[in-house]
Design a protein around this nucleic acid. Structure first.
Length: 498
RNA sequence: GCGGGUGUGGUCUAGUGGCUAUGAUUCGACCUUGCCAAGGUCGUGGCCCGGGUUCAAUUCCCGGCACCCGCACCA
């Protein structure tokens, strides 16, 4: 669906909106979520936790968002998470210094060159501004995407807001390993916020300066990358692989991907299969998803193999998860910087674990879920908007509505609401406005079911259960409501079978 | 960061150098209501921010910020 439609819905229903919007000088790239939006976002994280973390027996942590400078010396972010940028004196446009020089000389320019060396190269090769052909540039500056924070009264403990959540996982690895696991492979997960000083945030939730990540780092013995217990479960699962040298997506089974060495081992194929299954649960169809293989020039500095899970939307292909084989890059770096031992014993073998990472964007998943669920159709006499969200990420499972407020219906409905609420269902109570209006309004935020209390309820203790997409309704006994909702919530039964 | 466009109640919008700033919808109250945004009455709520020109600026000018499009960037 067009972005404008989604953003309009987001503003009308306060799903998300600009942070600090009452201040006209607030910077872009920060967004807030409210009510239905916050709930949908949270449920996406819950679904991830259930399907990709708990089901696999992985651990979860919640780490600090601010970490000391040493962490980022070790991780490589201080050196590599920055671009050498240079500004044209004539037209003020910004360019990457290394790219300008490399284009001119048709060579490779190391990013790590000092800014003074880059200045010299620019002068030596008579680099022109690609935009205005000007030859005068300001001095090269290193632009680091990390946000610096000064800690303590004197501000001399330099720290940074984390640019990715996973560093805490590497820092915590030893303690979690010793206390909770003592064996490999060990998966450690975390959902939280990360911060990057983007030059130009765009497209609302898709490119923010503060954004949600849900990451899993799987620590394993590199010699045993092919010893995966449950591989048989996925060996025939078809992965949608978009390979570097191929046109279009190829459906390749996990087994074949391993045999043809398209991936580094069974562990990676297994993870990709689970990831693809997970995103299907967000209602992303097979035809609109792919794992794009990244080439040497595209991968992050820590990755030896990368598969970007991408989804096709109105805005083109959007990356939802980067699957990176980080090798021992991170543990090695932290071991060196902290002078702590990171080697562990796995089956009597001393080994520095390798890491396969599943790094997903929460807000991007949220946006894509809205994009794919958005419907604008003629329903009744009018065109209406509704969200066809999967039950598991819908903000509420059902609205509880008394048909009218009088004759005891309001009280009866309140009782049902409290009962279902006490059974831990996310239900919404609404007694205002007409019944049709209440249906329409909750459809718009994707509530899949409605329970209406009417005059028959007062006689025979049944209610109307109404489904969002079909607008069909059936009678259900109050006594069996909780069970019915549980079936619908878990997908054990469809609406037709209730 | 660059270039272009836009900025009026929650949302969509009309309009203006001076008059109580338009309409729809939303929202709230009351009445009504018997299953798909029904009806009635009343009500809340607005010119993105700062500066300048002017007797007077939401309107004109300058600057800032945000959003949209294109470019660049995207570890």
């Amino acid at each position: 669906m067009p972005k404008e439609e989604i953003n309009n819905l987001a503003l009308r229903r306060a799903l998300y909106y600009p942070a600090a919007e009452i201040y006209s000088n607030s910077p872009s790239g920060f967004w807030e979520f409210a009510d239905a939006g916050e709930k949908i976002r949270r449920k996406i994280v819950d679904l991830w936790r259930k399907e990709l973390v708990e089901k696999e027996g992985f651990m979860e942590i919640f780490g600090a968002q601010i970490l000391p400078e040493d962490v980022f010396k070790a991780s490589g972010h201080l050196a590599s998470f920055s671009d050498p940028i240079v500004q044209c004196k004539k037209c003020n446009s910004l360019h990457r210094a290394d790219v300008l020089i490399a284009d001119k000389t048709r060579g490779v320019v190391p990013e790590s060159l000092a800014t003074s060396e880059l200045d010299a190269l620019i002068r030596k090769h008579g680099i022109e501004c690609p935009k205005c052909k000007g030859k005068e540039f300001h001095e090269v500056k290193k632009f680091n995407m990390m946000m610096k924070v000064d800690i303590g009264a004197t501000g001399n403990q330099v720290s940074y807001l984390r640019p990715e959540t996973c560093q805490s996982i590497f820092l915590d690895f030893k303690r979690v390993y010793r206390t909770m696991a003592n064996s490999l492979p060990l998966g450690i997960a975390q959902a939280g916020s990360s911060f990057r000083n983007e030059i130009a945030p765009r497209n609302t939730l898709l490119r923010q300066r503060e954004f949600g990540q849900m990451e899993i780092e799987i620590f394993f013995n590199p010699h045993r990358i092919n010893e995966i217990e449950n591989f048989s479960e996925v060996e025939n699962f078809k992965l949608n692989l978009f390979l570097l040298k191929e046109k279009g997506v190829k459906k390749i089974s996990c087994k074949e991907a391993v045999e043809k060495k398209l991936v580094s081992g069974k562990l990676i194929a297994y993870c990709l299969a689970r990831v693809q299954e997970f995103y299907k649960k967000l209602n992303i169809s097979e035809e609109k998803m792919r794992f794009r293989q990244l080439g040497n020039d595209e991968r992050a500095f820590y990755a030896a193999e990368t598969w970007d899970f991408e989804v096709e939307t109105d805005l083109g292909w959007i990356e939802l998860m980067a699957c990176n084989y980080r090798t021992d890059y991170d543990l090695k770096g932290h071991a060196k910087q902290s002078r702590q031992e990171m080697i562990v014993t796995d089956n009597n073998e001393k080994v520095l674990p390798h890491v396969f990472e599943l790094s997903a964007g929460i807000d991007r998943a949220f946006y894509v879920a809205l994009d794919l669920a958005f419907r604008k159709e003629k329903r009744g006499p009018e065109e209406r908007v509704f969200l066809d969200l999967p039950v598991r990420i819908a903000p509420y499972i059902a609205g509880i509505f008394p048909l009218v407020k009088k004759d005891g219906l309001l009280e009866k409905a309140t009782g049902i609401f409290r009962q279902l609420n006490s059974y831990d269902f996310d239900v919404l109570f609404e007694e205002k406005a007409s019944i049709g209006k209440r249906y329409a309004k909750t459809d718009e935020i994707g509530v899949p079911f409605a329970i209406t209390i009417d005059y028959d309820t007062m006689k025979d203790n049944t209610v109307t259960l109404r489904e969002r997409n079909s607008m069909q309704q059936k009678r259900v006994k109050i006594d069996s409501l909780a069970e019915a909702l549980w079936h619908l919530k878990t997908g054990k039964k469809s609406f037709e079978k209730i």
